[in-house]
């Protein structure tokens, strides 16, 4: 076999590859695969569409699915917001954001209202989303029935037939044993009255935001290779019983030490003296709702721009 010069080989490869040629970490072929899967996901709200999830420069379990979804959606004239636990400044969010910006050439935003695509791990922003915005949630485990039945075949059958009886029994047993539904984050929800989903480990506090939203919500699991979606104006209901209403996380008397809010999702920070200070998880929202009296010296949570 003759050896071609390196340059000639590279050119030949580019020509043969067409638009699947690598210009970056996510080629057109891969983007189209995600786009096609997402179209099905929108048409069948809540159904986990299998897709050919590529390996990305972030490890599996670290947002490779969210990254693929965002890169398939985003364009150079968009602004992307990336948050983890509600924070823009987190190391993982920052890493993902620079990969996205570097790849798509798009702008970046921390203000929720100004972002076109928001990729988030474990939170839905406090600021209500608008028509035209897309929320991409990073999903570790897309299968809500994982803790209910072990066989994948049985899980798929249950979804196919809309037969979630075993799930209901599990919830019922939970209440009987614990007095409350002990399921914390990633609370199972029924979408469009048809599919039960794992909404990703967002707190129960965020679940109501999914219902009848103005935005499109995309949930992408890279490691498990499934993508699902909730179109705007779609019914999303957490599974619960008539006489055991859905409750959200709440601590009496807790309020954010920065902005004073007691109706956003708060994170408890244990202090050395045994007390707990509470702060908003959504750092952008918090930074925009500070009291007028600007004597705050602590700037944790704000992104200096």
């Amino acid at each position: 076999m003759t050896t071609l010069s390196a340059e000639l080989t590279e050119r030949s490869v580019e020509q043969l590859a067409g638009d699947a040629a690598p210009r970056d970490i996510f080629d057109e072929l891969s983007k189209r695969a995600v786009r096609r899967a997402l179209l099905t996901a929108i048409a069948v709200p809540g159904y986990q569409v299998p897709f050919s999830s590529r390996e990305m420069p972030v490890a599996r379990g670290w947002g490779s699915g969210g990254l693929q979804a965002t890169l398939a959606l985003i364009g150079a004239d968009d602004n992307v917001k990336v948050i983890d636990q509600g924070e823009d400044a987190g190391v993982n969010a920052t890493n993902l954001r620079r990969l996205i910006v570097g790849n798509a050439g798009c702008g970046e935003e921390t203000e929720t209202g100004l972002a076109d695509v928001i990729q988030s791990r474990h939170r839905i922003p406090e600021e209500p989303l608008k028509d035209g915005q897309t929320l991409v949630l990073q999903v570790p485990v897309p299968e809500p029935l994982r803790g209910v039945v072990g066989s994948m075949d049985e899980q798929r059958r249950m979804h196919a037939e809309g037969d979630y009886a075993k799930m209901w029994v599990r919830l019922y047993e939970d209440i009987v044993r614990n007095g409350v539904v002990s399921h914390s984050a990633d609370y199972p929800c029924l979408v469009n009255g048809r599919y039960v989903i794992a909404p990703s480990p967002i707190p129960r506090f965020d679940v109501p935001k999914l219902n009848d939203s103005e935005a499109l919500v995309v949930l992408s699991a890279g490691r498990e290779k499934r993508i699902y979606a909730i179109p705007p104006h779609t019914r999303v209901e957490p599974l619960t019983f008539e006489d055991v209403p859905f409750t959200v996380e709440h601590t009496e008397g807790a309020a954010c030490v920065f902005c004073g809010s007691d109706d956003t999702y708060l994170i408890g920070v244990p202090e050395e003296d045994g007390t707990t200070r509470w702060v908003c998880s959504d750092t952008d929202w918090c930074s925009r709702h500070r009291p007028d009296d600007d004597t705050e010296t602590e700037t944790e949570g704000e992104v200096s721009r």
């Binding site: 057109e28 983007k31 189209r32 179209l39 929108i42 959606l73 364009g75 035209g132 499109l216 705007p232």
Partner: peptide, 15 residues
């Protein structure tokens, strides 16, 4: 262009 087309497509498919 196909990215832009796609955004319009999911907009109308979602609404």
């Amino acid at each position: 262009d196909s990215q832009r087309d796609y955004r319009r497509l999911i907009d109308v498919l979602g609404r």
